[in-house]
Computed example of a mutant assay.
Amino acid sequence: MSDHSGKRKHAIYRITFIGFVVNLVLAAGKLAAGIFGRSGAMVADAVHSFSDLATDVVVIAFARISAKPRDEGHDYGHGKYETLATILISLALAAVGTGILVNGIRAIRTVAEGGLLPRPGLVALLAAVLSIIAKEVLYRYTVREGRAVDSPSVVANAWHHRSDALSSLGTLVGIGCAYFLGERWRIADPIAALLVAVFIFKVAFDLVRTGLDELLERSLPADTEQEILRIVTASPEVTAPHNLRTRRIGASIAIEVHVRVDPKMSVARSHELTVDIERRLRERFGAGTLVVIHVEPLK
Rank of each mutant, 00 (worst) to 15 (best):
V198N: 05
T142W: 03
G176D: 07
V208K: 01
I175M: 06
V111A: 09
A178T: 12
S167Y: 04
G182Y: 13
R144S: 15
V198H: 05
A156V: 06
A124L: 03
R144C: 12
L166K: 08
D164A: 03
G182R: 10
V196A: 05
P152S: 02
L207F: 01
V208L: 03
R140Y: 11
A192M: 05
V123P: 10
I133M: 12
E136W: 04
A112M: 15
I105M: 15
V198P: 01
P118S: 11
G176N: 04
A128D: 03
K202G: 05
R147H: 15
R209C: 00
I100V: 14
V196N: 00
S163P: 02
V129S: 11
R144Q: 14
I175Y: 10
R147M: 11
G114V: 14
F205N: 03
A128C: 07
L122K: 10
A188G: 09
H160L: 02
D206S: 15
V96D: 04
R119Y: 07
I200M: 05
V155E: 00
N157E: 09
P120L: 00
L138I: 01
G114R: 08
G99I: 02
A178R: 04
A158F: 00
I105E: 07
A107V: 02
V203C: 06
D164E: 06
S131K: 09
L116A: 14
L194R: 13
V155N: 00
S131C: 15
I133D: 11
G115M: 13
R119D: 04
W159C: 03
I175E: 04
V102Q: 04
I175D: 05
R209F: 07
A124T: 11
I100G: 02
G121L: 10
G174T: 04
L181G: 08
G115T: 09
L125T: 02
E136S: 08
T110Q: 13
G104L: 03
D150P: 01
V111F: 04
A156D: 06
E145C: 14
E136T: 07
V96Y: 00
A95D: 14
A156I: 03
R209L: 02
I191W: 10
A204T: 03
F199H: 12
L207D: 03
H160K: 02
S167N: 14
V154I: 07
F199N: 14
A156W: 01
H160I: 03
R140E: 14
S163M: 11
I200Q: 01
S163K: 05
V137K: 08
K202R: 15
D150M: 12
F180M: 04
A158G: 11
A127P: 00
V203N: 00
S131L: 11
E136P: 12
T171S: 06
G104F: 07
V208P: 00
R209A: 13
G114S: 11
E183G: 06
L101C: 09
A193C: 10
Y139N: 06
G211N: 03
T98C: 07
A95F: 12
L166D: 01
T210Y: 09
T98V: 11
E183I: 15
A193W: 02
A95K: 03
L207V: 08
D189I: 15
V196D: 00
R119W: 02
L117M: 10
P118Y: 08
R209Q: 09
L138V: 02
V149M: 05
V96G: 02
K135R: 11
D206V: 08
L181Q: 10
V196E: 02
E145I: 08
